[in-house]
């Protein structure tokens, strides 16, 4: 939790800075951002969350190399963007950290960011960022438990690592918090890309009694389809997944990196190229629960979730 404390201090400082900077030049005009990411920029998940966020920053020029699941290829891309003179080079994958720690010292004038992680390797030109996806998981887990008439919730996961594990664990915690007697079945399919297997995992969870489900990573698009056919409710994460099944998606936890990026940009312009750990969470509005307006969520259930969000906001 040490990193959280650091984050807090950093963020308070950041907000102060923003407040100060707001009066002067806060535009990102001409600022060049390069993103290297593992999956497709239209994955409705992790990569898309960052690409969308960067594109929302007005005036910034954004270059993207997506689909870079090979770490060594990512290293070449990161090096190249730094050589090209991009102001901020983002390695959007926790597996890129090892390479980034070797590359960053070669480009002391360039600012790097990577995540999700909480380690800047003690380098002055590296930012790192993480998402408190367990918070959103917990909030939605609470709502899921309240909505589940069978007291049975299913979660489809990719491989039990990193951000996925964080989210799934948070979701499970939320469900049990709301209803300690509920059943939570979790199925990690051991692949980030097998859409067919993810859909069969969803079938299996529904077979085991689940009437509310969630899942994380890009292969869950298959699971959402099954949930939709079977009329089982769905909670999404990373990007807004409502478009996948407007009749059954209740809400999605969406990563909004733009506040964080704007803050980084302001700092970089002021000459601070790194050395700080960011965390997006409810308190700094980096995490947002986006409700599906077409789904008629009972007010009391929504209140349970909102209460938890407020709790996180007050904490953080």
């Amino acid at each position: 939790m040490k990193s959280r404390t650091i984050t807090l201090v950093v963020l308070m400082a950041a907000f102060a800075l923003i407040a100060a900077a707001c009066s002067s030049d806060d535009s990102a005009e001409g600022f060049r951002i390069a993103i290297v990411a593992p999956s497709a920029s239209n994955d409705l998940a992790f990569t898309q969350s960052m690409v969308d966020s960067a594109n929302r920053i007005e005036g910034a020029e954004v270059a993207v190399t997506d689909g870079t699941f090979v770490v060594e290829d990512a290293a070449v891309a990161l090096r190249d963007y730094a050589t090209e003179g991009y102001d901020l080079v983002i390695g959007h994958g926790s597996q890129y950290g090892g390479s980034l720690s070797e590359i960053a010292p070669d480009f002391p004038e360039t600012s790097f960011a990577w995540g999700t992680a909480a380690d800047t390797f003690g380098l002055p030109n590296v930012y790192s960022y993480e998402a408190a996806s367990d918070q959103g998981g917990e909030v939605m887990g609470i709502m899921a438990a309240a909505l589940s008439q069978a007291a049975n919730v299913g979660i489809v996961g990719p491989i039990e690592v990193g951000d996925a594990k964080l989210y799934v664990d948070g979701f499970e915690k939320g469900v049990l918090e709301q209803n300690p007697g509920a059943t939570v079945n979790i199925n990690y399919i051991d692949s980030f890309s097998d859409v067919a297997l993810a859909s069969e995992a969803a079938q299996s969870l529904i077979g085991a009694g689940a009437d509310v489900m969630s899942g994380t990573a890009q292969m869950t698009v298959g699971a959402v389809g099954v949930a939709s056919t079977e009329g089982v409710l769905w909670f999404g994460t990373q990007s807004n997944q409502t478009s996948l099944a407007p009749e059954i998606v209740v809400a999605s936890q969406v990563y909004h990196w733009e506040n964080m990026l704007e803050d980084m940009i302001a700092k970089i312009k002021d000459g601070t190229l790194g050395g700080e750990v960011y965390e997006i969470n409810f308190a700094n509005e980096g995490l947002v629960i986006e409700y599906n307006e077409d789904y008629d969520l009972p007010g009391d259930v929504k209140d349970l979730g909102e209460a938890k969000i407020d709790e996180f906001k007050n904490e953080g």
Partner: peptide
């Protein structure tokens, strides 16, 4: 490798 460690994304191609 740049990172001098083994890391996986859950695929051989990675």
């Amino acid at each position: 490798s740049e990172s001098h460690r083994m890391v996986t994304d859950g695929s051989t191609m990675g």
